[in-house]
Design a protein around this nucleic acid. Sequence first.
RNA 1: GGCCCCAUCGUCUAGGGGUUAGGACACAGGCUUUUCAAGCCUGCGACACGGGUUCGAUUCCCGUUGGGGCUACCA
Length: 487
Amino acid sequence: MSIRVRFAPSPTGQPHVGVIRTAIFDWLLARHFNGRFILRIEDTDRSRYVEGAVEEIIGALKWLGMDIDEGPEPIGGDHGPYFQSERLELYHRYADFLVESGKAYWCKCSAERLEELRAGQEAQKQDIKYDNYCREAHLKGAPGDGLHVLRFKIPEGGTTTFRDELRGDITVENSTLDDLVLIKRDGFPTYHFASCIDDHHMAISHVFRGEEWISSAPKHKLIYEAIGIEPPKFVHVPVILGTDKKKLSKRHGATNVLEYKNMGYLPEALFNFLALIGWNPGGDEEILPRERLIEAFSIERINTSAGVFDIEKLDWMNGAYIRALDIGELTDRLKPFMTEWRWIGVEWEPWGRDYVESVVALFQERLNRLTEMREKAFYFFEEIKGFEVSDVAKSFKGEDILVRLRAVRNALEDCDFSLDKLESAVRDTAETLGVGAGKLIHPLRLAASGTTGGPSLFELIKTLGKDRVLARIDFAIAWIEKNRLES
RNA sequence: GGCCCCAUCGUCUAGGGGUUAGGACACAGGCUUUUCAAGCCUGCGACACGGGUUCGAUUCCCGUUGGGGCUACCA
């Protein structure tokens, strides 16, 4: 049997992390078995349709490197159309069939009546379900006539069993199920009806969906039976929770995967990280490139319990991916951010690509997110405006600070700024002054970079270049003098 | 309320009738070092509870508790 999996989001919002993780499982299974990854848009709720949502979902899949084999134009495929709103005729045919075979019936109950019914049941602590008011009324209706909905006749008595590939057989009493709506008043199908029909017509072999669908799975099984078609295999995947163990929502930070792009995460890192929530290959490694994930993926190793989205671990993993990139590649990834910060223009001006790369090299192992570059490397692209009080207390302390700074300045002025010349110049000066090298190194770092942390000092000033380093020492000396006068 | 799902360190998880219950993130300490990182080493830290079954249960079964989901003419 060929493996065909579908990712079937509804265009009602942004590509949520949890939804995308399901897509990752879909994609991984398809690629593992050389199957097909299909995108189907479930737009049967016209009132919740969000403009641009489809584009955003496709953009998210693309960013994460998930190529789509079949889907809406221009992707195409021979099982289309891939928008459910364009498949109405198909659903209506099945609706007719079910009515004729007595397995579904038209219902004219108003929203008000249903509301009253529900309120009454709630008050009397009864099961909340449709009371089958129209079940034997044999009403005449038609899809989209504006008066009727089509309801499915749940068999009376008995039980229904469906198989979940992870949990095994799950059985429920039919009496706990109610006569669900198949076709809405506006003629559009509900999810339950449309997805069953489409999964069959698109020859879907496996359905991955959130575990919130478990309770309606028996109804789907019954629909398949009524139509007389074989259901696909169902895999209900665990949900992703926030750190407070509640379903991941905006309160926990970003839920739209595209936001992670803006926050400086690498798509391959996010992909790896998400794949490992609710699934793992069994070994000890966790940094698993796409190819390894494809190779290792299997349904049996998907977990049944919910997992927390731990952003600190994502940060670590992202840093690991950043460190594995070569400098040129990392520079390219950083470029859009750096242009946005106005450090460089589209042609790398005014610094030139070589300079930018040399700076990037200095920060590769100091970055967990690309955006951290902004506060860590600003002094390579912007002027220093002043110093933090705490930094001054640490690095500009001592009565002789100006003496030390001036001595370093003189030594550097006559230095050719090669790495070892730089180092010996500073160390020799320290010796001449009779102080430890740290007495010069720390002030020089603060003067040159405006901060106390960062890359190796000598590489730092070499990259900065003599002119800027001397100018910054002058600036620091003037700054210290001015602040002393004021205090 | 009813029905359903789930339960190993704080988090992601491995494991499975007999193990010193393993790894990773985070955290703490150390090494390295001009700082910050990175890297390496060490440490801290878990089988929710109660009954069974068994020579032996963290593992299998039942119950309890806890968490989650569904109970729409939304998906």
